[in-house]
């Protein structure tokens, strides 16, 4: 008897809470919209569009495909890919990148063969075949687009840093 009464009371409370929230919540949501609309907080491809709006995406940017090697910004940087790879198969069966960049095939394609680090395991031992941890090339190597950067790049090269600190020391 006591139990059922308690149940009834709690049901009534829940219903009331739901009713109130359904009146209050919409106004909360629109307040949130307003905040997002007012000022873009981060630079994003969505610009100032509210979170709940669906945008027509921009046309796809062209991939740089001129086969010109680019400068590396620091010695350990994995070189960026100077050509289109969008149609290339890279899965557990086949690696199209290695069709030109493997030790055995690079001469045919006159492509740079991947360095010896790709044949080393994490203990630095040399393996007969490519190390599984290097198999998925695009974990480290990326292509580039023919588009303007969305935010300014303030990266400073290590040579530049050394130059600056030498100049400071001289002063």
């Amino acid at each position: 008897m006591k139990n059922t009464l308690l149940n009834k009371v709690s049901t009534v409370c829940m219903t009331a809470a739901l009713a109130v929230s359904s009146i209050v919540l919409p106004s909360v949501a629109s307040a949130a919209d307003a905040v997002i609309d007012a000022e873009p907080q981060v630079a994003s491809m969505r610009g100032t569009a509210p979170l709940n709006a669906e945008l027509t995406p921009n046309p796809m940017e062209k991939v740089e495909n001129n086969d010109l090697k680019r400068q590396r910004d620091y010695p350990q940087q994995p070189p960026t890919i100077p050509h289109d790879i969008s149609k290339y198969q890279l899965d557990k069966n086949f690696n199209k990148c290695m069709d030109c960049h493997s030790r055995k095939l690079a001469d045919e394609a006159q492509a740079p063969a991947v360095s010896v680090t790709h044949y080393m395991n994490r203990d630095g031992e040399f393996l007969g075949e490519m190390s599984p941890r290097r198999y998925f090339c695009t974990q480290c190597h990326v292509h580039q687009l023919e588009s303007k950067p969305m935010v300014e790049n303030e990266f400073v090269d290590v040579d530049e840093l050394i130059k600056q600190s030498n100049q400071r020391a001289k002063k």
Partner: peptide
């Protein structure tokens, strides 16, 4: 090769392109 469909494991066809 593989212009119209996915390629299978290519061991023995193209050296070094597929896991062993």
């Amino acid at each position: 090769k593989g212009i119209a469909h996915k390629l299978p494991n290519m061991e023995g066809v193209r050296e070094g392109t597929s896991p062993h």
